[in-house]
């Protein structure tokens, strides 16, 4: 037993993330909203610096990138109003789908990570300092 003194502590491994607030990208716009609740979002893209001159003339970079959210993802995106903490969104998702807190946490944060990568959302960690 003495070999097993490393407690699974990791205090705050997900705690900071729960306190964070998710802010929707103001530049993102809703292109389409389906009756089932799914959403199509358009996020403006930034042209990389090497896309100038001749390359710019040869390759046309789209000005917007489309992101399609399924009904579950759309619900999460709508809940990200810049005021609610991640924890509040997790609790809301858990209540709505009858999930446990950590089931909901893993689902929501996984989805949020993909939205962050696509530039649909931004994250503010501990916004009140």
């Amino acid at each position: 037993m003495s070999r097993r003194i490393q407690t699974a502590s990791a205090p705050g491994a997900w705690d900071d993330m729960l306190k964070a607030v998710l802010i929707p990208n103001r530049a993102a716009r809703v292109v389409r909203e389906e009756p089932d609740g799914s959403l199509t979002l358009a996020v403006p893209t930034r042209k990389p610096s090497f896309f100038r001159g001749l390359i710019n003339w040869l390759v046309r970079v789209p000005q917007e990138r489309l992101t399609v959210l399924d009904p579950l993802g759309a619900g999460i995106w709508k809940a990200c109003d810049g005021k609610r903490s991640v924890e509040a969104i997790v609790v809301r998702f858990a209540t709505f789908h009858h999930l446990s807190f950590h089931e909901s946490r893993v689902s929501v944060t996984g989805y949020v990570t993909s939205l962050l990568r696509r530039g649909v959302l931004a994250v503010a960690v501990n916004p009140r300092g």
């Binding site: 097993r4 699974a8 502590s9 205090p11 705050g12 491994a13 705690d15 446990s100 807190f101 950590h102």
Partner: peptide, 28 residues
């Protein structure tokens, strides 16, 4: 408290449980 870590090994292992914010209990 939810189980976030578990071991299948019958000889030695651990189950760790967490509340919303941190690990709270470990069964070795």
């Amino acid at each position: 408290w939810e189980c976030l870590q578990f071991a299948r090994d019958p000889e030695a292992g651990r189950c760790a449980f967490a509340d919303r914010h941190r690990y709270r209990f470990e069964l070795n």
